[in-house]
Design a protein around this nucleic acid. Sequence first.
DNA 1: TGTACATCAGTGAACGCGCGTTCACTGATGTAC
DNA 2: TGTACATCAGTGAACGCGCGTTCACTGATGTAC
Lengths: 228, 228
Amino acid sequence: MEGMSTKMASEQQAADGRVIGARARATRRRLLDETARFLDSNGVLELKVVDITRAIGTSPATFYQYFNDVDDAILMLAEEAGEDERALVEYFSSDWHAEDGLESALDFVDAYRRYWNANRGVLRIRNLKAEEGDRRFRAVRRRASVPMVEAMAAMVRNGIEAGRLSRSLDPFATGAAMLAMLERLLSYQVGLGRAGSSVSDLRSTLATVLHQTLAAPHLPSAGLPDRA
Amino acid sequence: MEGMSTKMASEQQAADGRVIGARARATRRRLLDETARFLDSNGVLELKVVDITRAIGTSPATFYQYFNDVDDAILMLAEEAGEDERALVEYFSSDWHAEDGLESALDFVDAYRRYWNANRGVLRIRNLKAEEGDRRFRAVRRRASVPMVEAMAAMVRNGIEAGRLSRSLDPFATGAAMLAMLERLLSYQVGLGRAGSSVSDLRSTLATVLHQTLAAPHLPSAGLPDRA
DNA sequence: TGTACATCAGTGAACGCGCGTTCACTGATGTAC
DNA sequence: TGTACATCAGTGAACGCGCGTTCACTGATGTAC
């Protein structure tokens, strides 16, 4: 349980602590990838070590050379996904108030969608476990999302100080709300399609909401009175 | 499988189709309630019929008199929750453009929070199953959320026609996005608390985002130019 | 360059727990007369 | 009002599948000389 250095532990050691070579590392990778594939297609509720290992033509015993149990493997996948998620902060370094601010928002939405689609199975279970109170998954999720939430919070803070945004927004909560919207809505997707909203409707809607919530541009008709 | 009238099936028959009396109905209720309690506290992943039945001092065999399996029970709980969810549309009948529009939004947020907290365990698994592709859970969720999403979509449609809202919003997708934000953010709650946003920050943030996205009031400083 | 030995990597086959599920039964409630 | 019988409701105890997990082993790769 103790004794693993957190950083990159996933790439250095077997479950018994022994250092592993290149061949072993490849096997471990295949196991992780296959686990992710199963999470994408079949879901958590019927995830079985036997299936995973058989699918890549290896034996269940092999799995236990690298992971203590399935959760262990999933946690590592979640950590990897987290690294990709953290990388998304870069999309908040451009100036969303500029003329082409909505473009920046669209770029971010697209990047987030790619990220989500590449990791949906893993993220689904990460979030479930986190919500069910698993401390390890809580921690992984927090580490992944805080940077992005903070970046959005900073924009809101600026906006409030500049008088562009309502003081009834809490910066951090606003960031979290925006992230929540993205996460959840992307997991709908299919259902939405049936209801008549295309992927591009979704895309521009998300970008618009993000943009106006975080950067408060003028609306096309800003300054019109509410209807009487 | 076939042959059950959808409406109120949960209150009329045992798993074998036999009509049941008052005593049986009470037992069934206790089973459902206990299932919900387990979903709240322990989560889906370790839900066991034996535990549920033992907790209310009855036998696993009893469970199977009323439900084909655990999913069956959960589906019924999800249907019940759905009825409560549908009832929330009423909060969109008041005029969110009125002077006290933000109050309307706050009322809705509070109601939604009560709803969510009363059903979090069930909703969590309903959404998970729906996302993993289970048709029955998909259907239950759709029936529950479409009315609310439609109500919000209608507000957006009005707003766009009146020139108050951006044309880059797709009405239905916007409604879905707002619902997504609520659902997901409420399941965070705990994590947010630790990060320094209180429940009341959360409340006013959600209400503000909803209000400005759906009803586009003037902002405190509407009409100011973007910063140069 | 070849041989012996050490270490790394992988696995077949079985064990056994835990749980879903069922069956044959007991007990409770209702009803006819 | 009491008794007999029918139906409803509940359950103890066991069966057995499916899966996680392990152990003792084989095969592959690396290294010393």
